[in-house]
Design a protein around this nucleic acid. Sequence first.
DNA 1: TTTTGATTTATTGTCGACAATAGACAGGAG
DNA 2: CTCCTGTCTATTGTCGACAATAAATCAAAA
Lengths: 217, 217
Amino acid sequence: MKIKRETYKDQVVHFIYKEILKGNIKPKEQIKEAHLAQTLNISRAPIREALKELVSFGLLEYRPRIGTFVVDMKPDDIYETYTARGVLEGYAASISYQSLSLKDMENLKKMCEEMEYLAKKKEDMKLIDLGDKFHQKIFDSCKNKQVVKLTEALSLKSHLLFSQYWPKLYTPSQIKERHLIIVDAINSKKPDIIEKTIRNHYTETGKKISDFKEKGV
Amino acid sequence: MKIKRETYKDQVVHFIYKEILKGNIKPKEQIKEAHLAQTLNISRAPIREALKELVSFGLLEYRPRIGTFVVDMKPDDIYETYTARGVLEGYAASISYQSLSLKDMENLKKMCEEMEYLAKKKEDMKLIDLGDKFHQKIFDSCKNKQVVKLTEALSLKSHLLFSQYWPKLYTPSQIKERHLIIVDAINSKKPDIIEKTIRNHYTETGKKISDFKEKGV
DNA sequence: TTTTGATTTATTGTCGACAATAGACAGGAG
DNA sequence: CTCCTGTCTATTGTCGACAATAAATCAAAA
């Protein structure tokens, strides 16, 4: 068993992230250190560190001497976040598809089926988690740690977006199909195809979310 | 005139970066907060913040409850950093080459010439700066702010590496040629070519540096 | 000698207080 | 009324001290 010794800072990071996810803190809202410190009954030092960390993940925005705010993502930001992730994950997969075994591939296929199932049952959180696992399985096999790190940083952000919007954008069967396409691409064992397919996957979703946010389409 | 009001933290970030660049702080070395605070005659708070920031840029490495250390890049890390940057900058250029005017292109060409000149005169620092400007010109035109931000984060790291190794790796004329190839690629106005060319540019340099570090070749 | 355990030390983690400042507000001049 | 100016307030920036802990040291036991 792995023993975890989370510092206050780590717990605060987690806390704020969940608050944003739950909508208890809204975009553009300022997060006041003193206030949060009082709420959690700790000093401002660990709070500050947590804020800085979340800023580096792009979830918060910092204006010197003014404060830290929850980012308010414009449609463009959303699209950009998704395409950036597509670029990184696409590359990651294209150089590491070989390290995915037949068993892994079977597994990915099963995940697609299960996504459909969860989507039908409207098990939002579980679906998100599974989607995350799916993509993680793919880019975690990438040997380029630098790329993995950058992708992970972006994933927090896209994760947040997707959890808000997915049910309005895709039907359960679409979700399955869209991910099966990725599995097929990987099976083709052609790096170019793999990279392009994954890039496309994200670009599409990014466009869809940003369009939805812009015009409610 | 723009008035700058750097906080202590910002100055410390700058200070540490230069110290690493100058070799006054070496890889694997621990940066002790209290010690640095005393040296600079300020308290530990801004120091800590600076350290965290540099960690997020990948220049320092943080081990909880133990300390912050200058990263010691293994050949693999170097190669990975470069390829990651190539992936991002390549993509950036491929979607934004159109916003580079004819004048910009002329300018880039001139920069290539000047690189050769500076390399011959062994004006290391100026060369580095110019190289930076060259690449920045390219990826700054990219509308995807997300990609730009990620690229910038990586650039600090690759910058540091390149400044150490470049003279051992390329002759002045090679430096010119390698960058001219990029200019030509952009002139072709074919996104695929542009992306591939830039990616290659970084992959090659990454390989070269990591090989050099590994075997002194 | 080697291992174990206690003790010390150096360093990070956290704290509460004070300083500096951006933004809000009020009052007065034109 | 509008604009400027000074004052006030809320919030971040910095500070020095103390707490917790990882690593080094040393002593004792096997």
